[in-house]
Design a binder for these strands. Sequence first.
DNA 1: CAGCATCCAGCGGGATACTG
DNA 2: CAGTATCCCGCTGGATGCTG
Lengths: 144, 144
Amino acid sequence: MQEGTFSAPGHSEVTASPVASRPAPDVFAAACPTRQLLDRVADKWSVLILTTLGAEEMRFNALRRRIEGISQKMLSQTLRTLERDGLVERRVVASIPVRVSYVITPLGAELLSALQAMIDWAEQRMGAVAAAQAAFDRRLASVS
Amino acid sequence: MQEGTFSAPGHSEVTASPVASRPAPDVFAAACPTRQLLDRVADKWSVLILTTLGAEEMRFNALRRRIEGISQKMLSQTLRTLERDGLVERRVVASIPVRVSYVITPLGAELLSALQAMIDWAEQRMGAVAAAQAAFDRRLASVS
DNA sequence: CAGCATCCAGCGGGATACTG
DNA sequence: CAGTATCCCGCTGGATGCTG
């Protein structure tokens, strides 16, 4: 969502190189694709919106109701970013009142399915994480 | 890193036509695991650190050098969180000077492999995202 | 209904300095 | 080497109010 604060060495423009073959993508270089993805997908709401739209096309206020706790501002703002990124498509029907709905794009659906493994892991393993936390905190407490 | 703000919706049926290929998991429930995972993994550095440690055990300053742009504070802080979550193990050798190294745990390795699809997607598709952005911005500029 | 504009509290996170 | 401690700026994101 926010621009990276590291100095990105000239990655802002697509350098129009005809060959797209990346031999060894360095995940740790400042301008690596993974960082860029994280910078825009690892915020509070993007994944939730993407997941919701992955299930069905939805209108603005329906989304707002479905994703409880999201503010109008953040919904609007995040949808706009997702649209800009080509992950979500905005559809307007010029009726009165205007109807706007949002659909996931093929690119977005691709990303969502790539995220699915992570979501599945969370559902199966967050319990283990919580247990690890509890153990860690107990150890801390016993030391203090 | 903070607690979720959702209240329980209490409904989970999805009867509409799915665009993606999955029955939507209820990502919006009160104590949704995905939300919890995102709250702790979707920050700027966790995934990078996890990826690095997924390749090899590494000491503090080696990590710092490897992950370009990370500050000492954030490395220390994030490592501590990952350790608390049971995703990373901290190993201390009481020599002089002290040697500390970090290793990914089995749980962490599991998560990392769940994240791999996302990382792969980023490496293959961030170009498309950048293109979508450029197109979007061009459209905006032509309107204004 | 579907937003944009504004205000502002809170905290994420970088820079810097110091310790065992 | 492997951290802690502090300062502080800027962004995130909630609340509120207004528009077509």
